[in-house]
Nucleic acid binder design. Structure first.
Length: 640
DNA sequence: ATAGGGTTAG
């Protein structure tokens, strides 16, 4: 009888434990979990490390990010945690972005008498050291690993590679990989990803080429490396992309091609990187093909893919498709909205951008600093000064977003272009940042439009002090002087440039026809059909003159005779690209041009006439924004 | 258990 009762007791306990285990498995909210925890404490007074560990895992996985207090209290209630339990807690801290705690906990294991670290503990603590860039502890661990005999463990070795790479000990990272007996593909991929992350794209490519094999992750990593405008070496600036960055985006597309030749099937992540390369290059044709690929292969357009698609369309000048994609995407977060707002702003659709902003707020999303860059540049592009001030002030007072110098940049541009130069100057004085070159350039640009010599002088001095080697600054100044017919100053500037060995980056315009991109610089004669293009250009210029176009020779920077100035203007790269576009595309097709510098006044005027006379939409992305020319007018309403 | 993805002033 007594035995029976004991058995019954045991059975009851087993069944309760079983019940708790399954309740833990099913817990999907913290609320629910708390109830199970209470039930567990009440019904299972005895110690059961297995069940207790399950509870800890459940609590960890349901903990809010960065808050591990509850998990920690459970961890602390173990009387004798085993290695697995220690590791669980170390991993929890790592995932909660608290690597410091992971390291502390690891060293506590080492103080325990009855617990040994295993390969899990070691790779976890190495990852923590990596995030902390703690190469000192990392190196000590490396020595200990050898001593404890974990040398051949692939996971530990891979963690060592990551640790060294993140600590910028690239040689050591490479050495670990080279000395591995049987290096895992993952070990290569880790090093590859780290090279990419720190902007060592050449090292990454070299490693990629000599890897014994490459999987989808390897391809995605290297393609991402080339597609993303490296944040390490220069700030991301899709609209005034450097030549080097353009070559890198082209390389991303080449690698994408190679990947398909290697029979590796691209996934969502590949597509996102490739779309970003398309956006950088303005390669609309390629971007559309990728979109088709997504549709044909039934790849789900999730939030991130949707965001990158609509970003691609906006950056390639097809704002209608961008908005369409935005409306079709199944979920939108602050990225999706910010990208859309920025896209609309860049296309001069400021009112719509502001409408989107208020819809976003109505949906309960919290704007961030990037969102406000979109909102403020929307205001500055269309000259909405009062609105701009309102949004700028609301950043701190309503949304708790601290304005950065970029936001002041938008404001100063907005005020300057609206002619409120004094107000712009006051804002520079009152802001909590030292003004950068961008701000002075914005002021200088405004001085050019509004002919304010006094402020121009101050801006010039400051600009040349901050950026004495940037060719564009001299060009801008030279434009201002020639507009004012101060030829002596123009000559001085040219001498300064010569002495400092500064060369003007030539303006270039590119156009996509068929599957190829054609690039023109001013006076370009390199195209095989160059004769035909110039013939077309002559015809165009003649026709628009008959319709009232007068060359705006103030756009010519040099002190030439009138006729020479006109000739120089006539062969501007955007005009050549348009002449080619009119020849090479069917009547009625929109012409899309990408220019590396800002469009000049004369070209802007000429293109208005061309769009009218030839009944073509002409869309130009310059280094600042889009211009949509149609039936004789431009979407910027000549405000740029 | 280790690896890869979307925004950024002028």
């Amino acid at each position: 009888m007594r035995q029976y009762s004991k058995l019954l007791q045991q059975l009851t306990r087993k069944s309760i434990e079983h019940r708790i285990a399954s309740l833990l498995q099913d817990s999907s909210t913290q609320q629910h979990l708390l109830q199970v925890h209470a039930f567990y404490v009440k019904t299972c007074p005895g110690r059961n490390n297995f069940l207790h560990a399950k509870l800890l895992s459940a609590v960890v996985s349901l903990s809010p990010p960065n808050d591990l207090q509850y998990a920690r209290s459970i961890f602390d209630s173990f009387s004798m945690p085993d290695t697995f339990i220690w590791n669980t807690m170390i991993r929890a801290y790592l995932n909660a972005q608290k690597p410091r705690e992971s390291v502390t906990l690891y060293f506590q294991i080492r103080l325990q008498d009855n617990v040994l670290v295993d390969s899990f503990s070691l790779s976890l603590v190495l990852q923590a050291c990596a995030r902390l860039m703690d190469s000192e502890n990392g190196q000590k661990l490396h020595a200990l690993i050898a001593k404890l005999g974990f040398g051949p463990d692939v996971f530990v070795q891979t963690a060592l590679i990551e640790m060294y790479a993140k600590c910028h000990c690239l040689e050591d990272a490479g050495k670990v990989l080279d000395h591995m007996e049987k290096p895992d593909l993952v070990s290569y991929n880790v090093l590859l990803a780290e090279y990419v992350r720190i902007g060592e794209i050449e090292l990454a490519h070299e490693l990629f080429n000599r890897m014994p094999e490459r999987d989808l992750v390897s391809w995605n990593t290297i393609i991402h490396g080339y597609a993303s405008l490296s944040e390490v070496r220069s700030a991301p600036k899709p609209f005034n992309i450097t030549n080097e960055q353009r070559q890198q985006s082209n390389e991303a597309l080449r690698l994408f091609h190679r990947m398909q030749l290697a029979n590796v099937v691209p996934d969502k992540i590949t597509i996102i990187s490739v779309l970003s390369a398309c956006g950088n290059l303005g390669a609309l044709g390629m971007g559309r093909m990728i979109h088709e690929y997504v549709e044909i292969n039934g790849i789900e357009i999730d939030m991130k893919l949707g965001t990158s698609l609509l970003d691609m369309y906006a950056k390639c000048g097809d704002i209608d498709s961008s908005v369409k994609t935005f409306k079709n995407v199944n979920a939108r977060d602050i990225f999706t909205w910010s990208v859309m707002i920025m896209g609309l702003a860049n296309h001069g659709l400021g009112e719509l951008a502001l409408e989107y902003f208020s819809n976003m707020i109505a949906e309960g999303l919290k704007p961030n600093d990037v969102t406000f860059l979109g909102v403020l540049s929307a205001c500055s592009h269309i000259g909405l000064v009062e609105e701009g001030w309102k949004y700028f002030k609301s950043m701190t007072s309503v949304y708790g977003v601290a304005p950065k110098i970029e936001h002041y940049g938008c404001m100063i541009d907005m005020l300057g272009r609206a002619g409120l130069l004094q107000e712009a100057r006051e804002l520079i004085k009152s802001m909590p940042f030292a003004p950068d070159a961008v701000l002075w350039r914005a002021i200088l640009g405004a001085c050019r439009i509004h002919k304010n010599v006094e402020l121009a002088e101050e801006a010039t001095v400051n600009l040349l002090e901050l950026e004495p080697h940037v060719d564009g600054n001299y060009v801008l100044l030279s434009n201002i002087f020639s507009q004012a017919r101060k030829w002596d100053n123009v000559v001085d500037l040219r001498r300064m440039m010569r002495n400092a060995d500064i060369h003007k980056v030539p303006g270039s315009s590119s156009i996509e026809v068929g599957n190829a991109v054609y690039e023109f610089v001013a006076g370009d004669k390199s195209h095989p059909k160059s004769d035909k293009i110039y013939e077309m250009l002559d015809e165009i210029l003649h026709s628009i003159r008959c319709n009232g176009y007068e060359p705006l020779t103030t756009s010519a920077i040099q002190d030439f005779a009138e006729q020479e100035k006109q000739n120089a203007l006539a062969a501007h790269s955007e005009k050549l690209a348009i002449a080619f576009g009119l020849l090479a595309t069917a009547p009625g097709t929109p012409i899309r041009i990408f220019k590396n510098l800002r469009i000049c006044d004369d070209c802007h005027l000429a293109i208005k006439f061309i769009s009218n006379l030839y009944h073509r939409k002409i869309i130009i992305r310059d280094r600042n924004r889009f211009h949509h020319f149609e039936e004789g007018s431009c979407s910027c309403k000549d405000y740029w």
